[in-house]
Amino acid sequence: MAERRDTGKATRAATRATGEGAAPVRLAVRKTYKLYLGGAFPRSESGRSYPVTSADGRHLANAALASRKDARDAVATARKAFGGWSARTAYNRGQILYRVAEMMEGRRDQFAAQAVAAQGLSADEADRVVSAAIDRWVYYAGWTDKVAQVIGGANPVAGPYYNHSAPEPTGVVVVFAPPNAPLLGLTSVIAPVIATGNTTVVVASEKAPLAAIDLAEVLATSDLPGGVVNLLTGRVPELGPHLAAHADVDALDLTGAGEAAVEFEKAAAATLTRVLRPTPEADGGEEAWLDPDPGTSRMTPFLETKTVWHPIGT
């Protein structure tokens, strides 16, 4: 685990100076991985954590093991943030998503190192995945102020009425992130949900959750209001049933729900919660998410159409 953090110049210099086997002059400062709720980084209220290992089985860090109370808190936080975020102008949301890309670009090395350690990618593969993840934020930043024009519009009704339909965010979306694509896959499911003005509670990949928390640090410094994205690390079987059945959740993205997807869809039926079923890339690795133009298919499931009528007359 210390190796994973041996990327700083100071550490490398220290290793060189002291030679093999000796204690470094400066001990690396490790990061405590916590949850991301309401713009803050709390531990799980349960006080639990679980060990996270690299692709080849080395201990990397301990991640917070979120409880169902954390999940409920996350939904409440996301609900509270929905009014403000959905009321931002599309232009402003685009600016903020672009800012996320800027912040991520500045931390390329960190994300690449994480991808190498957690997923066992080669340096080239990791670079490609990180680049694609950054570009995905740019992609959806551009969609924020275009999607309403693409899927909304004027309706030529047969009468003296002004009539138009426009998309609106559905509300709080729970996202089960893809288990085998912890960075690009994660980005690909979060960005479209918030681009359109929804707020979200994300259950990160259980076995590779660290990139999600690294991403949360980027989100926290990108002018994204607290509560728009809330990240839980933990177990889908433990958190999922409560989130799927939660009456204040408006939609589910079941991408990473695995075998529980059907059970969650049934639970969602109780309050007519919208459901995006797992798509073909759900179980794939990062490479399954490389398509640079995923289109509107991950935005429209979390949009409502509002149609407004008004008479025309003098």
């Binding site: 309706n155 009704v157 149609t307 009528w309 008004h310």
Partner: peptide
Amino acid sequence: AGVVWSNTFNKFDPTSPFG
């Protein structure tokens, strides 16, 4: 709400999405 009628109510048209 999926349909908002302003200064009118219960108007329907095949071109106008409802739901």
